[in-house]
Every structure is written in C-alpha cells, then in structure tokens.
C-alpha cells in the first residue's frame, strides 16, 4: 500500500466491442491529487478509460476502484457482484467529467447550467447554488454571461461553462476528454488557462486526455502513453517527452511533431 490513498485504480480491466478489444487487461493507479495526462493515437483506448470511470461504458473483465471502493462491482459475501444503479449513483458522486463537445443543456441559461444540477442532485438550496454558480462563472471568466443561452456562446466559452458546471458538483476526481479538440485554434488557450488554474489549485485528482502535448507536459505529474488498449509507457513528463524508452512512444511523438505540434 502506498502512503497516499488511491483515487483511481484499474486492475486488469478489459473492454470489448464485440470481438474488438478496446482495453486489454489494463492496470493503472492514480493517487489522490495527482494530475495525469493520457496520450496516444486515436483508437488507443485513452478516452475509454475516462468513459469507464464515468460509468458511460461497462467493462468485461477486471475491476475498477475509486477511493478504495469497487466502481462496477459491489461487495457480496466474500466476492464481488455487478454494481446496482444505486451503487453507481453513490460512486458517481466522486467524479466529474468535461466532454469534447461540451454537452451543455441548450434549454437552460448559462447560470442554470451551473446552478441547477447541484440543486437537483445534491439538494443544495437555490440561493447557495446560485451564489456558487456565480463564483464559478467568475472563476472561468464568464461572470457576465449568466443570462445567455449556450447557443449564443463561442466554443471556448461553452467549454468554460462546461468546466464550471462540472466543478459545481465538487467532485474529487475530474475527467477531461479532449476538452480543446473541438475548438477553433484561437479559442484553445482560454480553456487551457482555466484548466491550468484548476491544476495549480492542487486538491483535485485530474485525468486528462489531450493532444495538446506542451500543455500535458506543463501541468501533469505523470504521462501515460497508450496504444492498442494498453499502457505502453509511463513516467514523468520530462522523461517521456525528452527520453522515451519505447520505440512506439518515440514514433508517436515524432508524428506529433511532424504534424506541427510542439511538445516542449
């Protein structure tokens, strides 16, 4: 056992779509408060790791642990049984997620998007939720946009609202699934700035799937390189980017640089 409690642990997790294995007996430990970046080519399974944690995808083998409790299973006798909906509901309390395509609620204003979920799910009073929403919107630089509808915002603004909405639920673990991939290039930085603030603040465990290599290098404590549904190589950012041990990692980084991305 490590001295820090683990926020997330995968033990031999396999995920299949029919005959296709998306994850192959993947194991992974994330101590509380650690910032992890998952990189790798598309189809490598990095997004699947997040979606399994958010209970959007089931697993076929292995176990996933969140804060020491099984996510997809419940203790039963000496062994484990498949998780019930109430169990999943209890576990999701620890986790929040930001999506590539924002998925804001189009029928709610920006303020409602951030203030309504805590009222509905956590039973927070209206006044408190409204206040916290205003604070969070200020944090992401959108204090004046509360009355707007998502359709009236730019992509970067939408993603910042989505981040505020996820933070409003006060999850211990935050998942970011390619949060800047759907944005026009000139809007990427405003979202990264918000992510940087969250990372610096420190307490929250972060799992970030991204193609922004220099950003991953800047904010993460550890990089995981995935390919073909398995972790090929992991280590501190400087080592992975400057001195990768594995040939596949080297090839991937070479392609990324060739495509015009910076990794420094």
């Amino acid at each position: 056992m490590s001295d820090r409690q683990l926020a997330v642990e995968f033990r031999g997790v396999s995920k299949l779509y029919g005959a296709l294995a998306v994850l192959k007996e993947l194991s992974l430990s994330v101590p509380q408060g650690e910032k992890i970046a998952l990189i790798g080519p598309s189809g490598s399974g990095k997004t699947t790791v997040l979606r399994i944690l958010m209970t959007l995808e089931t697993i076929q083998a292995g176990t996933v642990w969140v804060k020491g409790e099984p996510l997809w299973h419940m203790p039963k006798g000496d062994g484990l049984a498949p998780a019930s909906e109430p169990h999943l509901h209890a576990m999701r309390r620890h986790i929040g997620m930001v999506f590539q395509h924002f998925n804001l609620f189009p029928h709610m204003t920006v303020q409602e998007n951030v203030a309504r979920p805590p009222q509905i799910v956590l039973g927070v009073t209206r006044g408190e939720a409204e206040q916290r929403a205003q604070d969070l919107l200020r944090l992401v630089g959108l204090a004046q946009k509360g009355a707007s509808y998502p359709a009236q915002l730019s992509g970067g603004q939408k993603q910042r609202v989505a981040i505020a909405r996820a933070l409003a639920m006060q999850p211990a673990i935050m998942l970011f699934d390619e949060p800047t991939s759907a944005l026009d290039p000139e809007l990427v930085e405003e979202v990264l700035a918000v992510l940087r603030d969250i990372a610096i603040e420190g307490k929250t465990t972060m799992l970030l799937v991204t193609h922004e290599m220099s950003f991953a290098r800047e904010i993460s404590d550890r990089i995981l390189f995935l390919d073909g549904g398995a972790i090929v190589e992991e280590g501190p950012p400087d080592q992975i980017f400057s001195d990768p041990k594995e040939e596949r990692t080297r090839l991937f980084l070479k392609k990324i640089i060739a495509a015009g991305h910076r990794i420094d």
Binding site: L56, H89, R92, F99, L104, F105, P117, V121, R165
Partner: peptide, 12 residues
C-alpha cells in the same frame, strides 16, 4: 451527449 452529460452530473 445530453444523456451522457446528465449521467456525468449524477442525475438519476
């Protein structure tokens, strides 16, 4: 994505 977002926010 709307359903997924509401799962992520832990709606029943």
């Amino acid at each position: 994505g709307q359903t997924e977002a509401s799962v992520a926010l832990n709606f029943t």
